[in-house]
Simulated scan of single mutants.
Amino acid sequence: MGIFDRLGDVIRSYLNDTGPGFTAGPSMGRRYADPDLDAAYEELDDFLEGKDKAGGRADTGENGFSHEGNAGNAGSKTPPESLRGDFDALGLPFGASAEECKAAYKKLLKLHHPDRHAGHEGNMKKATEKSARINAAYDRIEKWRATGKAE
């Protein structure tokens, strides 16, 4: 196979990633898979689905949150005002559902993950800071959903 054939394959592979049939996740329809990127996506999916490290399902309730410490959240459906900035950080309206939060978190983290900006030091630093803010906001919202207490 000549250099131009391989170059054509790479270009077709890249175009398949961003075309109308694009789906995120392991291999993402790429011809040349990146095992590290695939493992990172699988780990993120497992975390967001509440699976433990062994691949089993963590002990969660019907809404996907742990039963431990959930009594404080039983009567409180409206989040406290202190979490308003966290919903804004995820680009969501105040009081968005758990499913909306998870989807926005996953989308933003994939977009702003530092590994996507590894070729440019300045962009990588910005992406690291942005992903840290996204993680912190999502963690505070999830902690409130699980315990009923905001930081």
Rank of each mutant, 00 (worst) to 15 (best):
L83A: 01
G8P: 00
S82C: 02
G69R: 12
D88L: 12
I141E: 04
W144T: 04
S13V: 05
K130L: 12
A58R: 15
N123K: 11
A24M: 07
Y105M: 08
Y138K: 13
V10N: 04
I11M: 01
A96N: 06
A33H: 12
L111I: 02
Y32T: 01
D86N: 15
R145H: 09
A58F: 06
D5L: 03
A24R: 10
P80L: 06
F4V: 06
D38Q: 01
A118S: 13
E49L: 14
F65Q: 10
G61N: 12
G25D: 03
R133A: 12
P93K: 09
C101E: 14
N135V: 06
E121H: 09
P35R: 11
G122W: 00
R145I: 06
E99V: 14
P114L: 05
G21F: 06
R140F: 01
N135W: 10
R6M: 14
E99Y: 04
R31G: 09
L37N: 07
L37W: 11
D46W: 11
Y105F: 15
T23W: 00
I134C: 05
G29W: 08
D86K: 11
E62G: 10
L109I: 13
N123C: 02
Y105V: 08
N73A: 15
G122S: 08
E43R: 13
A58T: 14
G50A: 06
D86G: 06
D9H: 08
G119K: 14
R84Q: 14
D9F: 04
S76C: 05
K53V: 10
A150E: 11
N135C: 08
A24G: 07
A150W: 11
T60M: 03
R116N: 15
T78P: 00
D88I: 03
A39Q: 14
E129T: 14
R133Y: 02
G72T: 07
A39V: 07
H67G: 14
R6E: 09
G72R: 08
N123A: 13
G95C: 03
A96T: 04
H120F: 09
E62A: 14
R133Q: 14
A24K: 10
A71H: 04
Y14S: 03
N73W: 04
T128W: 05
